[in-house]
Amino acid sequence: MISLNNVHKSYVTGSNSLHVLKGIDLEIKQGEFVSIMGSSGSGKSTLLNILGILDNYDQGSYYLNGTLVKNMSEKKAAQLRNELVGFVFQSFNLISFKNAMENVALPLYYQGVPRKKRNKIALEYLDKMGLLEWAEHLPNEMSGGQKQRVAIARSLISKPKIIFADEPTGALDTSTSYEVMEILKEINNEGITVILVTHEHDIAAMTHKIIRLNDGVIAEIIKNGDLKHWKHQYAKELETA
């Protein structure tokens, strides 16, 4: 599904060059539930953006669903994002002047689905998220958790193969965070690959595979079976700190 081979990325600002990703090799299969962790500046968000074709990379190769993603035209990238990928962001990124239903329906607009039909589908997805009665509300009339559920509904409406979530719980309190994670888990149970970036250990622990980034390289990959041990170690780290 996703295959990265020696991917490098630097940000150039003026004469300074910041080498963010220093050779990432990564394989993610269909249906996995993966979290990317790391301290700030470790390159975790950059990696996610590259995976979601929101950003480009300098070196190496990235295959998404068998297609090489490199120097792709914006038009092609947009099409690929629309068909294959759904995004959930920390700051929700809903369009402020559109109500919940219109926000959810927007990806279908770019697929050419007629207005009535896409609004009907959007209502179904909002219903799944328990937000049917909020369909006519604008984003600023909703709570953070509600907004994130609208964003998740929007990411799902185009029936993507992968959901990318950048700190999906970053702006939410603990109980709402767990609700959102429950939803992501259900999505994963339906066979959709979910990849999220987080710096919260408890959130990462709910996924099946944790990729720890450190200073632009993958420090370790923790699989499902090792999670218990990892949790134990994490608790000890907290005690010593």
Binding site: A78, R81, I95, L106, Y110
Partner: peptide, 16 residues
């Protein structure tokens, strides 16, 4: 600009 970013992230082509 931000709205454009959102639209592009969910599949809007530059022409649209």
């Amino acid at each position: 600009t931000k709205e454009i970013g959102i639209r592009k992230a969910i599949g809007a082509s530059p022409a649209s």
